[in-house]
Amino acid sequence: MRKLTEQELKLVQQTMIKKHITSAELLMEIYDHYISHLERFSAEDFDKELIELNKHWTCIYCETLEKELFKNINKSIRRSQWGLIKSFFSWPKLVFTFFLITTITLLANSLEAKLQRMLLVMPPLFFLLALIVFVGATSLLRIRRIKRLFNAIELKIDSTYSRYFVTYLFLPISFFNLGIYTPKLLGTDNFLPEYLSNFSVVSFSFFLYIYSISAYEAWKIKSKTALI
């Protein structure tokens, strides 16, 4: 085992850039694979082994691997969050969930309609927005470090975890917008009786709280292992 020289490392990095990988997670994993392999050979064999590696890691192969990774990361985030959501309905979190439902219902009944809607829906939405900004910023900083390592600021990569995670965080915000603007566009915003409208808001806010808390928990788990 030996350490690669600066020149050899540069050659490996240039090879990586030519593969047009967009996922930072995959790029770093392949980069480590290349270096781990090349470190086992002498400097004389470096060129031969690099060519050998490139025969396996072709651009088409990397693209296929990347597509598979996208699917798996998407599945992994969904699985983590769903597992967390399910855990809210199991002991001892069940007590917390009931406490949350009771508090929300009491709040909804004791306040004036507009104020109660704002108080119920806005905190989790702002929390989700803050999480989006935080995840985006953290990911950006980490990606910058990778770009610096490869000496290629123009490198078009991003964190796949971060991309899918932000999409999941945007989901309830999109539903909120849809729920607000669609009835307005259709002129049916006063169609629902107030009690039904209140019930919808309470239900949606309950979903929002559960979703926000589970999203945050999922991010805490994933941030330890991924580039997000």
Binding site: L9, M28, Y31, D32, E68, K75, S76, R79, G83, T225
Partner: peptide, 23 residues
Amino acid sequence: LHKLEAEGLLTTEIQQVDNRVRK
């Protein structure tokens, strides 16, 4: 490996090795 991770059978850990990360 990625499939097993997505299925929840494997977990990952990132470690800094020299000037790169290892999964």
